[in-house]
């Protein structure tokens, strides 16, 4: 549905996007991750036809974003960063305007706007000027604007930015429920969001893709993947630490916790060591109060991939 090939964007001497390529099949929700200034928004602006790429190509639904820009824009619902809208218009005026631009005429205009009133829960502020609304409502208006023509492709630049935890939850549910028949790209730097709704994650840093995987694949790259955290009787702690260090597949054992009663055992290359640990503790009569196997941590992987790239860039 979306195909990006060697896309480059230069602003003067600065290369904001440096030859990225990826494809998004129909129905997928892709999370676009990266530090601030990595090129996420720039890439989205090129996909939506706001700016033209310096080199490379991109297409949406088979239409080229440069040569067939209008056809591309018709298929896309776009929520730009911080949801800009015309502040002096009321919510209903604004949505009717967007519906008209999206090709609706006469009765269909109101109808489309009213449908968004339900979907995005805008009844309370329907006739208020947008500039008087809270951040959360403005974001919802931006969301409504992007959805009003029921587009096959949604591009959302930080859709939950500035929302409170309840609103974030609502927006995520909204996105998840649409996912089955829409292709969605959303950018964020909230990692839990990616885990909650995205089937796939692309991490970009310094204009290039540094990771492209599912959230669980990414978690496996974490040094915490399959690590075992265990709470042990304090008098056994030293003994346990020595024993655990000698199990095959264990890379390191770390002492944690305020009371120094918790050990974390890191495996070598994500090996599954939980079973060996439990066998050992039974044999040695270790009294374990708690035992937990970690899935791996996205924030740690995020830091790892975006920082190592940083080092590469500097060494060039």
């Amino acid at each position: 549905m979306i195909s990006v090939s060697k896309l480059v964007k230069e602003f003067g001497a600065f290369r904001a996007v440096n030859g990225i390529s990826f494809d998004v099949p129909k129905g997928q929700i892709l999370g676009f991750l990266g530090p601030n200034g990595a090129g996420k928004s720039t890439t989205m602006k090129m996909l939506t036809g706001f700016i033209e790429p310096s080199a490379g190509t991109a297409s949406v639904g088979g239409k080229d974003v440069v040569k067939d820009s209008l056809a591309v824009r018709r298929q896309i619902g776009y929520l730009p960063e911080s949801a800009p809208s015309y502040g002096e218009m009321t919510v209903s005026e604004f949505l009717c305007f967007i519906a008209e631009i999206r090709g609706k005429r006469s009765a269909a205009v109101r109808q489309a706007a009213e449908a968004m009133r339900e979907t995005c829960d805008l009844s309370a502020v329907w006739n208020q000027p947008i500039e008087t609304l809270s951040k959360g409502y403005r974001q919802r208006v931006g969301f409504a604007q992007a959805l009003i023509h029921d587009p096959p492709v949604l591009i959302l630049d930080e859709p939950t930015d500035g929302l409170d935890p309840n609103q974030k939850h609502e927006v995520r549910n909204l996105i998840k429920n649409m996912g089955s028949n829409k292709t969605i790209i959303l950018s964020t730097h909230i990692l839990e969001e990616v885990e909650a709704i995205c089937q796939r994650v692309v991490i970009i840093a310094h204009g290039g893709i540094v990771a492209d995987a599912t959230p669980s694949e990414l978690r496996q790259q974490s040094k915490f993947h399959n690590a075992v955290t265990m709470k042990i009787a304090p008098n056994q702690i030293e003994k346990a630490k020595a024993l655990l260090s000698n199990i095959g597949g264990v890379a390191a054992v770390e002492l944690l916790g305020i009371d120094n009663d918790t050990l974390r055992v890191f495996p070598k290359q994500g090996e599954a060591i939980a079973l060996r640990i439990s066998e050992l503790s039974r044999k040695e009569n270790l009294s374990i109060h708690q035992l937990q196997v970690e899935q791996g941590r996205l924030d740690e992987v995020f830091r790892k991939v975006t920082k190592s790239d940083n080092l590469n860039q500097k060494s060039h």
């Binding site: 939506t48 036809g49 706001f50 209008l70 911080s82 800009p84 015309y86 967007i98 604007q145």
Partner: peptide, 14 residues
Amino acid sequence: RSGTIELLFTLPVT
């Protein structure tokens, strides 16, 4: 100033 230009020119408007 308000950034609506990005909204405007990502709508199907020449």
